[in-house]
Nucleic acid binder design. Structure first.
Length: 112
DNA sequence: GCCTTGACGAGAA
DNA sequence: GTTCTCGCCAAGG
């Protein structure tokens, strides 16, 4: 296993694990947060290599749609898990509470 | 080495 | 809004 992969994987797992329930991050966001900008395409591979269960379903596309084919089994699984956390959908797109972060502060505390 | 493959993203049309 | 095109980069054949 390459040194790159080792470092990259751990940073990605770290970031993904930190996504709070009910919130989502894009693949690119995860990559940047992990310290590897431009590595969005590697994020899914890293998650797949995790020995521990990760909240992989909280990682979505930048346009807030899910990455799987809408009719696939994985799509349904991901959508269901997100809905269980209160994430709402408008068709294929995730609806996010916009600038009103008052609820966020109450639930998750001051962000930064 | 060269070519193809991705759970991708941003900008253009 | 949408769909296309191109850039991205490690991995595997």
């Amino acid at each position: 296993m390459s040194r790159f992969q080792d470092k990259f994987d751990h940073r990605v797992w770290e970031v993904v694990s930190a996504i709070p329930p009910g919130r989502v991050m894009g693949y690119g966001e995860v990559a940047r947060a992990a310290g590897f900008p431009r590595y969005s395409r590697m994020v899914s591979a890293a998650m797949g290599r995790s020995p521990e269960p990760l909240p992989w379903f909280r990682v979505v596309r930048s346009n807030r749609t899910l990455a799987f084919e809408p009719d696939s089994r994985y799509y349904r699984e991901q959508a269901q898990l997100l809905k269980q956390e209160g994430v709402r959908f408008d068709g294929l797109k995730i609806i996010e509470a916009e600038s009103d972060d008052s609820l966020d502060r109450i639930l998750w505390g001051p962000q930064d």
